[in-house]
Design a protein around this nucleic acid. Sequence first.
DNA 1: AATAGCGGCAACCGCCCTACT
DNA 2: TAGTAGGGCGGTTGCCGCTAT
Length: 266
Amino acid sequence: MGRQPCCEKIGLKRGPWTIEEDHKLVNFLINNGVNCWRMVPKLAGLLRCGKSCRLRWMNYLRPDLKRGPLTEDEEEQIIQLHARLGNRWSKIAAHFPGRTDNEIKNHWNTRIKKRLKLLGLDPATHKPTEQSVKHDTEIERTSRSNDEDTSLQFKPSDSTALDTLPITEKKQEVEFASDDTIDLMQDYDKLWGSLNVEAMVHSETNPSNDYSPSFSIEDSVNTSMNESISMQEDSQKWVPSVDSSISWTWDDFNPLEDFFAFQNLY
DNA sequence: AATAGCGGCAACCGCCCTACT
DNA sequence: TAGTAGGGCGGTTGCCGCTAT
């Protein structure tokens, strides 16, 4: 006996959301908040499944979303977190206020995976591929024979990250961070430190692409782990009181322009 | 100018987890 | 304690726009 579907799919709309649907959903959530996602489409007058509404809101319409490409700094953090957490995208996303798990997952699949492969690392295991192991051994031998090139030695810059985690998560993450993983994290620092990877990747994959993040790295750096955790907690509460907590400053949010343009029609 | 190939990303699917009764 | 409903999550799909030919 299979599980019942989350909703009656017959007669429901699927595919990309229209401006009008976005407007209805945002309007409803602002005025009413959400107690039960299943009821949202009915009450908001949408021919969508409740899950679809939730997804649209969480991944696209939420006003606290940070739009724009991920910075190099964020990418590095994602790689380090992935080494500890694996494909637990929501856990990883929790460290990046304003970023969604879907966004990070997509970014991982489309860009970071390639980047790691270029570095000779298997994105799934974070272990060097066979070829690169050979290559690495060569380098290791050379650097050792050339004597103590300290520039290649690991500096544990990320060693304090775990300290800022909640105890339960800390336990979970420490369990995941095997010796192998820690070694790999050390390798990352070595690799990132010694290579101008960004330039390399872009010159190989898209020479004309001028990679320029639309916001400063400071944004993410200034957001400490503690802040991200408190925001994570806040995000559990804010939806029901959405009307009081939103400051509508979706400057870069294209659909919003359309949303307001749409609203002017009334 | 047309079109095939490719990459990025929004959205869907279905299983898992948790809270509630 | 067991059963159930509903939300959360990760994997996957398919569309759209860009680029190369």
